[in-house]
């Protein structure tokens, strides 16, 4: 696959898949042989069809009657792993940095590729450090609760903030971040 041209089918990078799968295993959403198989299937150097990601999302959805708190926790866990056991610590030093990082070219845009109408965008619309307020406009195909968890986990990970919350009342694609 060329880095210059977008693939015709949407794909997600193995590092993102591996983080998601490992979070599922850490939270015991999958266990035993299914967990081993899930992790074994993922090569962090490869790109995977977006459908594979959606399969895991669907599996999570089917496993719980009340899945929203689980999805939120999954997103937080993914970013905790990324920061403490992945490259995160070298890339960001303050919680607020994560918002710029994730909406920049090395954030979500670097781990999902494909037709624009499918992969969407993830943009920082507002950022006010003094007020501890930011707004992100997301049209990615990822589950919005997991995405909220990713933002909470990523902003909290460096440990310099006391309060972090992300809401999207009324507009699922408008993620309002409050951080102090």
């Amino acid at each position: 696959m060329s880095d210059q041209s977008e693939p015709r089918e949407p794909v997600v990078h193995g590092t993102l898949m591996a983080g998601f799968a490992q979070a599922c295993v850490n939270l015991n959403i999958v266990a035993g042989r299914r967990a081993t198989a899930l992790l074994a299937d993922i090569d962090m150097g490869r790109w995977f069809p977006l459908a594979k990601w959606m399969e895991i999302e669907q599996m999570v959805g089917e496993s719980y009657a009340n899945v929203e708190p689980i999805r939120l926790k999954l997103g937080i866990e993914m970013m905790t792993l990324w920061y403490h056991h992945g490259p995160g610590k070298a890339l960001i030093h303050r919680g607020a940095d994560f918002l710029h990082f994730q909406t920049g070219s090395h954030g979500i845009a670097s781990v999902i590729r494909g037709p624009r109408e499918v992969v969407g965008s993830f943009d920082l619309e507002e950022f006010d450090s003094a007020r501890g307020h930011a707004v992100i406009r997301s049209s990615t195909p990822f589950d919005k609760t997991i995405e909220r968890g990713v933002l909470i986990g990523g902003v909290m990970a460096p440990g310099d903030l006391y309060y972090v919350d992300v809401t999207n009342d009324g507009d699922l694609n408008r993620l309002v971040v409050e951080f102090h």
């Binding site: 719980y64 009657a65 009340n66 899945v67 929203e68 708190p69 689980i70 939120l72 926790k73 937080i76 909470i152």
Partner: peptide, 11 residues
């Protein structure tokens, strides 16, 4: 968040 998570896990 943790209470909601554990409640969902318990359910």
């Amino acid at each position: 968040r943790d209470t909601a998570y554990w409640q969902a896990t318990n359910d």
